Computed example of a mutant assay.
Amino acid sequence: MLRIGDFVQHKQADLTGVVIGYGHQIIDDIYLPTLVVHLDRSKSFSRKGIMEDLSSKWLPVETKMHTHAA
């Protein structure tokens, strides 16, 4: 489950940002959770913005490289 503050990438739109909230959509009487994301500036967006879409359309992005001692 993605949490507020997680860095995410949209699967289809190839946009990245930080989760800032949650929401929902109801489609055909089915409750579907959404994420509200503060977008980073990208080639396709000339400025930052906010996007809400189904949580299933977002992937977590690792922001730091972890090293493991052998």
Rank of each mutant, 00 (worst) to 15 (best):
M65Y: 10
I4C: 11
H68F: 04
M1Q: 15
G5W: 11
Q9C: 11
S44W: 01
L32V: 14
D6Y: 02
G5P: 12
D53T: 05
H66R: 13
W58H: 07
Y31N: 09
L35K: 06
Q25W: 03
K48E: 15
D14Q: 03
T34A: 07
H68Y: 05
V19H: 03
D40K: 03
S42T: 13
H38I: 01
W58I: 07
H24V: 05
S56D: 15
D40W: 00
V18N: 03
Y22D: 12
K11V: 06
D6R: 06
D6V: 02
K11Y: 00
K64D: 13
H66C: 04
Q9L: 08
P33V: 01
L35N: 08
I30P: 00
R47D: 14
H10I: 01
D40Y: 02
A69W: 01
D29F: 04
L32N: 14
K11Q: 09
T16G: 02
Y22W: 03
L15G: 01
V18P: 00
L15A: 07
L54I: 06
L2H: 09
E52G: 07
D53I: 02
S44K: 14
S55V: 14
P33L: 01
M65N: 10
T67M: 09
Q9D: 01
L59V: 04
D6F: 04
R3Y: 13
Q12R: 10
S55P: 03
L32E: 14
D14K: 09
